[in-house]
Design a protein around this nucleic acid. Structure first.
Lengths: 207, 207
DNA sequence: ATTGACAAGTGACGACGTGTCATTTATGAT
DNA sequence: ATCATAAATGACACGTCGTCACTTGTCAAT
């Protein structure tokens, strides 16, 4: 999280800083990004950068979290729209994410982020976080969704169902960048995998 | 891939170099690893390192590939043992990997590798590679496995089934490190997710 | 045993990157 | 107008990377 000093800045200057960071993170992966480039483009001194952020990870994950939150909100939106049917909401969220991530201004940033994804990046995008705030979100999700179509016995199995769905979703987002898929191709893949998951990959008599 | 110069070295010296690299990569993630530490421990000059390897990524992925190949071989082994039943072989491979990755001498190395995993690390461990050699392996796998229990119509669906299985496998390996699970806990999680995938997460009448 | 050609080994060096800190400048309350 | 506090600054110490001109080792041919 950026320091208070950053949030005290006039909005205009905040925006310039974030845009400069975004540009740099769009150019190269996080570890190769250079603070020198960011401060040069934003026209601030090196020392100032460290007044605002702990380091480059700080501003990177701040940018990422902003987008992650929007993705989660889009899920909640679609859930409400489709009577809490998770499997109607999820493909809609997936498309929403793809469209957002592939926008001209975002594309390279997300490409760098996802192709050099690590556990922390993944968790930023997932509901499964230790932070109490998101734990609450997760519990609300579990409580809210329509469970009638789901095939599970224990609560533990339900958790695993959710985890499977989200992990397949993220995997497909990453894949869309790794293989440079069009939104249509990515949707096709994702829906196929989701329907395989729904109906099961084993014939009835073999389970 | 290391340069020929490296392979011309006496085995002893190769081993010392690789061990030094392994130690450094066990200490910190790839990007923070320092060549200085490696050459210091291995007692070679800086210039020598660059005679042997293109850069630190070179030696890192060489180490990783060595282990990845062994994992793939263990899968083939179990396939043969269980009459090419993929779903008997896969959980065995999973346990085999866990045991190997959690060995004292390997644990930290794999932890760093998996917690800072990117697409390249993942692909190193997956059959889905562009390299012809492994494409061949993948085709042999597709051809070899017993498909009688599997519930699919098109070849495309079969590919997705395989992809789902491998992606869930890798996800669980990473998870075992991210959450510091015991081998038993990780096996439990994995088997549960696999059986959910097999039988499907939707009730029959809702698919 | 000597030569000579090629392969391997070396470490100093330039370029660049990070995070800090003493100092300067701005701000806002009294 | 004064002063305390917050913000801004850029030079600096330290570390890392990859290169290159040079030295050392190896081995086949004479």
């Amino acid at each position: 999280m950026p320091k208070q000093t950053f949030f005290n800045l006039p909005d205009q200057k905040q925006a310039v800083l974030l845009q400069a960071a975004m540009n740099e993170f769009s150019r190269v992966p996080l570890h190769d990004a250079s603070i020198a480039n960011i401060i040069h483009e934003a026209n601030v001194a090196r020392g100032s950068f460290y007044q605002y952020f702990k380091d480059k990870e700080d501003v990177f994950y701040y940018l990422l979290e902003t987008h992650a939150k929007q993705s989660q909100e889009s899920l909640l939106l679609y859930l409400r729209k489709y009577d809490y049917d998770l499997f109607k909401a999820i493909p809609n969220m997936f498309t929403w994410m793809l469209e957002k991530f592939h926008e001209r201004t975002n594309r390279d940033f997300f490409k760098q982020a996802f192709l050099h994804m690590n556990v922390k990046v993944e968790q930023t995008f997932s509901f499964r976080l230790r932070k109490e705030e998101l734990q609450r979100e997760y519990k609300r999700l579990i409580k809210g969704i329509d469970k009638t179509p789901l095939n599970y016995d224990t609560l533990e199995e339900l958790h695993h169902i959710i985890e499977l769905v989200f992990s397949i979703t993220m995997h497909n987002v990453v894949h869309s960048f790794a293989r440079d898929l069009t939104i249509e191709q990515a949707n096709h893949r994702f829906n196929m995998q989701l329907s395989l998951l729904k109906r099961g990959i084993f014939k009835r008599e073999h389970v």
